[in-house]
């Protein structure tokens, strides 16, 4: 699998907000059917990095390749066109409209008269939600009336419904209980089997370690190092997160602590 072209390659990405380098010359990549964990403390630059990939921010410098081709991602719409879907930490749901309206937001299904095809959208929503959360029944209600797990299902449904090639999950289990967390883990493995590449962002090592094929650790906006999860221990990765020290099993990045 290492021989194939990476699905996504972000190279030397930098972005600064008012003089502070939130992301500084970061390079990460992702292959088809691979789960890459992006780890680091709060404020390490993980969310900013993936927001560049999902089109919410534009990088000051660096390049993004999708399937080997150089692309420019200027808006969330561009990212979606390249098959990059994101589940945000905040879920990014419009609380006042129902599940179907959220799932199809920005990509509504239309009738031949260019009106909203609400019936088809609701029927499709029932299908995709039936897969993710079979007990879900509250299709007519604004999503603010839903539980944390149900809201999460809606956000996930929005990302997977449109045949994503790359899925970005920012703290996907932060709002969930143990049973729902397990459900999300199973979903990730299922999507991986389908050949979807997944960036899994978390500040919690245990969430990520079992699911990820590789991890990249960030600290102060820079990559400390990247490692296969089979080559390093959890303690070593913890050391990367906390002190920025790169173990022998990992490839050091520009942010690695130098002796």
């Amino acid at each position: 699998m290492d021989m194939t072209t990476p699905l996504v390659e972000m190279r030397d990405i930098s972005i600064a907000f008012g003089g502070i380098k939130a992301v500084d010359a970061v390079s990460v990549d992702l292959k088809a059917g691979e789960v890459v964990g992006l780890l680091g403390h709060n404020g390490a630059g993980k969310s900013t990095l993936i927001k560049i990939l999902s089109g919410a921010y534009q990088a000051d410098s660096g390049e993004i390749r999708v399937g080997g081709e150089l692309v420019s991602i200027g808006s969330p719409r561009d990212a979606k066109r390249h098959g990059i879907e994101t589940i945000y930490q905040t879920l990014a749901l419009a609380d006042n409209v129902d599940a179907a309206a959220n799932i199809f937001l920005g990509r509504e299904l239309l009738t031949p008269w260019h009106t909203l095809d609400d019936s088809t959208m609701e029927a499709e929503t029932r299908k995709v939600m039936g897969r993710l959360n079979p007990h879900f029944r509250r299709f007519k209600e604004p999503v603010k009336a839903l539980s944390g797990g149900q809201r999460q299902s809606v956000a996930i449904a929005r990302a997977i419904y449109f045949n994503a090639r790359v899925l970005i999950m920012d703290e996907p289990t932060a709002a969930l209980g143990p049973a729902e967390t397990k459900q999300v883990a199973e979903l990730i493995l299922e999507l991986k089997r389908q050949g979807i590449g997944i960036f899994l962002i978390s500040h919690d090592l245990h969430d990520v370690f079992d699911l990820a094929d590789r991890v990249s650790v960030m600290k102060n906006g820079r990559v400390v190092g990247t490692a296969r999860t089979s080559d390093v221990t959890q303690d070593e990765v913890l050391g990367m997160i906390i002190s920025g020290k790169c173990p022998t099993g990992a490839v050091p990045g520009p942010g690695a602590l130098r002796d």
């Binding site: 749901l93 006042n96 309206a101 937001l105 920005g106």
Partner: peptide, 25 residues
């Protein structure tokens, strides 16, 4: 407001402007 995409966007923006923007609106 109820049958066209424009109306859907208007309500989505009111519910969560950031979400609407991240959804490509």
């Amino acid at each position: 407001t109820t049958r066209l995409r424009f109306g859907r966007y208007v309500f989505a923006i009111g519910g969560n402007p950031e979400a609407a923007q991240l959804s490509g609106v």
